[in-house]
């Protein structure tokens, strides 16, 4: 078990506003981690900082890579595919991924596409929301990296697609890699999470193993998470 991600004293400001401060986090290999927080809490910002798409102050180390350029080689971040033309075919997008990411594994993609039922000749604008998300997942997991970041893959997705996506994660996540999956509703993914990380009050407020919550607090993960928000400020004293 090695360290995959180390964040030390991370601070991020935008337009005079502090969006993240004093953030500390260490993730080890082979884990599925839920990144939780209200809408606007800074989950996506944190993922962008880890990937190197946003620049903050402090240390971010992904499997030994500290510069944004080096980190991009170690991180596969789910992309909403908004950069592609609406009429782009799936196979064109796959070709683009192969071109830009030397670690993109064509064989893995073929297996994932087969499992998720993705057709190579389908156009991006004809895909349902669920199928589009399946494509995002297949592309993200087909890279071979230390850290995978999935930004709210389940928002607005039907339960069958969700189950299929969850199963594809269990099946294809490399043993030594770690996957961070953000969501504001944890109940539906709780059984597959090793740990949860909660972004609250502009910092990383909680990092705990899910089995610890069940074992010691005798609570389900959703209740535990919601209770962090009850009483609010008085916990922060």
């Amino acid at each position: 078990m090695s360290t995959i991600l180390t964040i030390k004293n991370l601070k991020y400001r935008r337009n005079q506003h502090v969006l993240l401060h004093d953030a500390q986090l260490t993730l080890t290999s082979g884990k599925i981690v839920g990144l939780l927080g209200e809408n606007g809490a800074g989950k996506t910002t944190l993922m962008r900082l880890i990937t190197g798409l946003a620049q903050g102050q402090g240390v971010i180390d992904v499997a030994g890579a500290t510069s944004p350029v080096a980190r991009k080689r170690q991180v596969s971040f789910s992309d909403a595919l908004n950069g592609f033309m609406a009429s782009a075919k799936v196979q064109k997008i796959v070709q683009f991924y192969q071109l830009v990411y030397p670690d993109f594994n064509r064989q893995r993609y073929a297996q994932l596409a087969d499992f998720l039922g993705l057709r190579a000749d389908a156009k991006l604008n004809t895909l349902s929301k669920g199928t589009r998300e399946k494509l995002v997942i297949a592309l993200t997991l087909s890279r071979q990296v230390a850290l995978y970041l999935l930004d709210e893959p389940f928002s607005g997705i039907d339960s069958m697609s969700r189950k299929k996506i969850i199963n594809s994660i269990i099946k294809w996540l490399p043993t030594d890699a770690t996957l961070v999956i953000s969501d504001h509703y944890v109940a539906e993914i709780a059984p597959i999470l090793d740990e949860i990380v909660v972004v609250k009050d502009q910092t990383i407020a909680v990092h705990v193993a899910t089995e610890t919550i069940r074992d010691q607090e005798h609570q389900d993960i959703q209740d535990y998470y919601e209770q962090l928000y009850e009483g609010g400020e008085q916990h922060d004293a």
Partner: peptide, 14 residues
């Protein structure tokens, strides 16, 4: 192990 994890929809580590 991985097959069992998929069947039960749980984490491989668990």
């Amino acid at each position: 192990v991985r097959q069992l994890a998929v069947e039960l929809t749980v984490n491989v580590n668990t």
